[in-house]
Design a protein around this nucleic acid. Structure first.
Lengths: 345, 345
DNA sequence: ATGAAAGCGCTAACAA
DNA sequence: TTGTTAGCGCTTTCAT
């Protein structure tokens, strides 16, 4: 049968080479204390020489908890490909995962397949926990992972106790941006969002408007229409008398500052722009974007910790990580004074 | 012991519910033909009701080939976080992987850990194949995966037969860009690269220079120095009389077009810039980048096909996918005529 | 067409 | 301290 293929090296091979029983090897590799240091050393050496490590699948069948985190990103309108946030997230995730010897399984799905992927990955136990991002209003995934019994943590505002959340405190963010804009003299501003279905977007809409009102600043909520032939022009047309825009992602903000001058709106002279998210892209455009940087790496690390504890059967409750930091660059300035104000068109 | 935790649903449960033996269930789920359509239907229904799918780990222990692709990205100087190429790659990979029911395991590593991760993932059989990207000169990974006996495919120019490659044909790319630049009247150009160790960079250096020479265009090779406080100024200082730059990534190119005007070099009037790679970032900056777009999705799909065949034990040889397309935007124009040429300093 | 039984590589009680 | 043994959930001959 097995002609001459390199017989795969198993725990038995290692045991044989070290002159012990397989269980001794197992003990060593599972940190069990009942093996003499001498034998343990011999075993480790044998394993090294044969380049052996316990087969991941085998140990998992044996009832041992797994070590794989599932991240399922919904592929809506290139939201993944053109959002540097995901790069930061992935980078931030793999680091702490590696530390606890977990790996990251990643996939992009179309909306319709979303539930199916979660179900399949879980029922096959391909992954041992999920990280939920881009949580939407009435997000079906919350109920779904509950129902599956899959450990999960979500990034964003807490929804139910069912799934603990890692939240970036936006508390001070409103203050920071409104103070900044207020100090510059803006009296009428607008928030721009492209994904009205996302919980965090709605949340921000409400709280932003309230906070602005409290300061006597008129605040509007605008929607970015990606289907428009010229989303920026389209947006500015609807911006009315707003002299500053607070935009939900730096990708959108970048497009605005790049394109606005071309349709007669100078940034920041006539219009200030703040990005509610930061990345290397913010400094790629001119003027560079004033942005609210989120501690993505910290969120990721926190989520991983929570996930691990969940998988270990511990009780875990939602956590808040440090707030956003306003990084002032060049896309914000004082609004035009009444006299040199230019009519919208 | 196991008090009241929801007894996990196994193949036995499904079998019981369908009134058959476990092997019958297994047969159905492995497309074996020896089950009557009637029972098969009953079995599938039972599985659905219990939301059961064969446990991934268990089937893998049983000797069945796995379904997981490993992608290990070397984390050098934010190369991952700030390179949209990886987003395109990941997006392009997950699609065809999902079609064959594979998943993608992704991690970022520091240079020193690279080999270790490959070895660990393979010896644990956490993954069943690797995709090698950013192949460097004398890349140790080639020998390493060979030695491990791990199926692997690399993205880039073929190195040895050992590891089959998916290559984007650059043949016409040189022609396209040199024709474009030549037609505009450029006589002295330079190639800019930030990773001199990468095989594809070196390859391009050589072939680009040759192709330019053949057309009577003087071509230089410049290195981008990310450690410089102002890499763009630094670069332009070394650019000499070159009137056009062909830059290895759109991220670098974007920085150049954004920053050059600030240090007195107008793009494209005084300097033309071409990006050897394209993404949404190219149209974010002004002027928008003339760029050579690569068929990333096609490469990914091809790689996945090759990987699957490799894992199935088939012989696989390197493949070439369609060439780059030059997308002409606004960052290229005719060089300044002698008289209004400005001295570099 | 269906099922019994022997593994797959490992872990973990339990003996020795 | 060490080894024996019985699973883990599934696949796969091989009988029936």
């Amino acid at each position: 049968m097995n002609e001459n293929r390199p017989a795969r090296v198993t725990i038995a091979a290692v045991a044989a080479r070290a002159g012990v029983s397989p269980s001794a090897v197992s003990h060593v590799f599972n940190g069990r204390p009942n093996v003499s240091e001498a034998t343990a050393a011999r075993i480790r050496e044998a394993a090294d020489q044969l380049n052996w490590r316990p087969n991941y699948a085998s140990r998992k069948v044996g009832g041992q908890g797994g070590h794989s985190l599932g991240l399922v990103v919904s592929r809506i309108g290139g939201r993944f490909e053109r959002d540097p946030f995901f790069m930061r997230l992935i980078a931030g995730l793999t680091q702490p995962l590696a530390e606890i010897d977990w790996s990251l399984s990643l996939t992009l799905v179309l909306a319709d397949d979303e539930q199916r992927v979660y179900r399949e990955w879980w029922s096959e136990r391909r992954v041992d926990a999920f990280l939920l991002v881009d949580v939407r209003d009435e997000d079906p995934r919350i109920a779904h992972v509950r129902e599956l019994g899959a450990p999960a943590v979500l990034l964003g505002a807490p929804i139910e106790d069912a799934v603990p959340a890692v939240t970036v405190s936006d508390e001070t963010a409103y203050d920071q941006v409104l103070t900044h804009l207020g100090d510059l003299g803006h009296l009428q501003i607008a928030r721009v969002s492209d994904s009205p279905g996302l919980v965090h977007a709605r949340d921000r809409d409400r709280r932003f408007t309230e906070a602005a009102l409290r300061r006597g600043i008129a605040a509007d909520v605008l929607r970015w229409d990606p289907t428009s032939p010229d989303p920026v022009a389209d947006l500015l047309r609807r911006a009315g008398a707003a002299t500053a825009l607070v935009v939900d992602s730096e990708a959108m903000a970048a497009e605005i500052v790049a394109h606005a001058p071309e349709i007669g709106v100078r940034v920041p002279d006539q219009l200030s722009v703040v990005a509610w998210e930061d990345s290397w892209v913010s400094t790629l455009v001119r003027p560079r974007l004033t942005a609210l940087d989120a501690p993505v790496e910290e969120s990721a690390r926190t989520a991983v910790q929570m996930l691990r504890r969940l998988v270990d059967g511990e009780q875990v409750s939602s956590q808040t990580v440090s707030g956003r930091r306003l990084i002032i660059r060049e896309s914000t300035a004082s609004p035009p004074s009444k006299k040199d104000e230019t009519p919208s068109d």
